[in-house]
Nucleic acid binder design. Sequence first.
DNA 1: TGCAACCGGTTGCAAAATGCAAGTGGTATG
DNA 2: CATACCACTTGCATTTTGCAACCGGTTGCA
Lengths: 173, 173
Amino acid sequence: MNERSDCPINLTLEVIGDKWTLLIIRDIIFGDRRHFRELLTKSNEGISSNILADRLKTLMSEDILTREDDPTHKQKGIYSLTEKGIALLPILAEMGAWGYKYLPVSEELGVRAQVLRDGGPKMRTDFMDELRARHLGTKPRRTRGASVSERLQSAYEDAMARKTKNSRAAKRA
Amino acid sequence: MNERSDCPINLTLEVIGDKWTLLIIRDIIFGDRRHFRELLTKSNEGISSNILADRLKTLMSEDILTREDDPTHKQKGIYSLTEKGIALLPILAEMGAWGYKYLPVSEELGVRAQVLRDGGPKMRTDFMDELRARHLGTKPRRTRGASVSERLQSAYEDAMARKTKNSRAAKRA
DNA sequence: TGCAACCGGTTGCAAAATGCAAGTGGTATG
DNA sequence: CATACCACTTGCATTTTGCAACCGGTTGCA
């Protein structure tokens, strides 16, 4: 499938238009997965290792990810987002918002999309700044209060706590 | 591929995560293609008829498109977006903006993405209102000046005119 | 009235992408 | 020294895609 057209949407789809690529980016962004093994085993969907290896290769050749050796462990590689990769966040945010609104999303997994949607454009740019600090080594812009990552994480944990509490309540009933 | 997870991004990708679905939506939204034949022949990428038929079927079963008979022509169907389909616009807009910034987009085909990006959130909601009028029959909200469709279209035509002018100039040289 | 062009698809088949399980060579850990 | 972990690769069956030809029906026109 080469060079179908130079339309921006088409070119974007030729890079990220499959079922796995954006899930990998999602796990890197929202789950801070940085190693092959983490991406392979700690995701909800169960990608297979050949597909993961192939997509990581493509993402590196597209300059969306880079890979360095982990100094603490000779075999481990650390994958990092480039600026181009970080710039995918708005697409993920819109997809999350759409899915949250129109598809049968579970409460625990939907809460991040909800928080990010309600946080508006400011939360997106703050989050992208945090990702730059984490992946590109730029110095973190000091903010008061919890970071976006922390807010997303605690929203997720609250939802999980509510869920297990409810399921215990259901069992008692 | 059933039920990988109930994450909003994953569920969204299960619906629109392939190389053709969003191109069809793009042609309906930005090119006002409403018939099978139009979608088949008037797009830049050349989808094949079996894939188009399959995707239209899926999009209808997902409640993103509806189909009615064209009263002027017994065989023609008219495809219309639902509210859920119109709500895909922000995803397309973000993909367009990302592709425009990071990929080798042609001037003529990129100008729509550029205009839509620079128009900000207001242009998006205005455009979605226009789409509701066109596809759902809601009454058009009266605005002064050109509609978003018209602005996008004339930006495209200007870019095309510049292009042919330049290519004539190049031939003369 | 006859005929060509157009309508929305379907069918058959080859090629490519995906999914799964097992395997590889090397490294850290107790 | 054994076991577990590391990032992948390989082989093979299944699924999806891409291409071209074809289908019965409709429309416009001479």
